[in-house]
């Protein structure tokens, strides 16, 4: 009898400490990054680090602006492509598709989420980059194809499953009575979707988009393979860019003999972490308010 109780008590404590350790990881990572990034922030003011465009590690100049812009443009473009497509897709799956079709399509889309990102990168290099190069040449724009546009397209495809599966979930959770009330007044199905269902599902859809955004924002491998990695502020979607994630992945561990280089890269990592944390907290907040 006593043994059972002891096991019961111990098992609870074990699970509790494991959970605590896992949740503490976020704090630990953030703190570690901060400590490592401190040296460079002590030498150069953070404002200058964020707004300067000159990236000359050997001269001790670490301007993050081009990389921030690279990340921003690639992510922004990806969201522009992904949002309308995902919305139309989610609405179709949840409101129009017959159940049998839904049962086939949804797992298929969820499969996209399971493809390793390096595979998306290869797909980008083999299909998207040449397509952009050839199409651009036809309209007299010279580009290698490795570009913000290529990054945007590949990222958009990668966030489809996230945005779609959360949105479908959210739209399906709108009570049937909402549709019935609208339809019984003689509204068409599209009017019902547009004016009642989407309105009800709106906070959840925003949260889905933010989740997708966070994924796109932090994605490294696939992007680094298709954006060209030239440290410049891109002026058109056909130019190369160099997102922050790619910078860190390409250089960390290789150029660490350069003074302050590793501190600079970890500052980049800290910035990424903070922005993603901010967005996922925003998503949580919006979902909570919508749930009320």
């Amino acid at each position: 009898m006593r043994v059972r109780k002891v096991i019961d008590g111990v098992s609870e404590k074990v699970m509790c400490s494991v959970t605590a350790a896992v949740s503490f990881l976020v704090v630990l990572i953030a703190a570690g990054l901060y400590l490592k990034a401190r040296p460079i922030m002590e030498i150069t003011p953070i404002k200058e680090l964020l707004t300067s465009s000159s990236w000359h590690p050997l001269k001790g100049e670490f301007g993050f602006y081009p990389f921030l812009m690279g990340t921003f443009w690639v992510t922004f473009l990806a969201m522009i492509f992904a949002i309308p497509i995902c919305l139309l897709c989610s609405i179709y799956i949840s409101e129009y598709a017959p159940r049998k079709m839904r049962d086939v399509i949804k797992p298929l889309i969820d499969l996209l989420a399971g493809i390793p990102s390096v595979v998306y990168g290869v797909f980008g290099v083999l299909a998207v980059v040449p397509l952009i190069r050839d199409t651009a040449h036809r309209i007299n724009i010279s580009t290698t194809g490795y570009s913000v546009l290529a990054g945007g397209i590949v990222l958009a495809i990668m966030v489809f499953p996230i945005i779609i599966s959360v949105s479908v979930e959210v739209i399906q959770s709108v009570p049937y009575e909402a549709r019935e009330s609208s339809l019984s007044l003689g509204a068409t199905q599209w009017q019902t979707v547009k004016k009642v269902v989407l309105k009800k599902a709106f906070p959840g859809i925003v949260a889905a988009i933010i989740l997708g955004f966070s994924r796109a924002f932090g994605e490294t491998m696939a992007v680094l393979m298709v954006v060209g990695n030239v440290p410049q502020v891109p002026h058109s979607i056909f130019e190369e860019a160099y997102p922050l994630t790619a910078l860190i992945a390409n250089n960390y561990g290789e150029m660490l003999s350069v003074p302050l280089y590793d501190s600079a890269l970890l500052l980049g990592a800290l910035i990424l972490l903070l922005i993603v944390l901010l967005f996922s907290m925003a998503a949580r907040l919006i979902l909570m308010r919508g749930g009320r």
């Binding site: 009570p175 009575e177 909402a178 019935e180 009330s181 609208s182 019984s184 009642v196 309105k199």
Partner: peptide, 12 residues
């Protein structure tokens, strides 16, 4: 044909 259901469902 108007419909009044069991539980009122005001539109959002």
């Amino acid at each position: 044909m108007g419909l009044l259901s069991q539980r009122p469902y005001p539109l959002p």
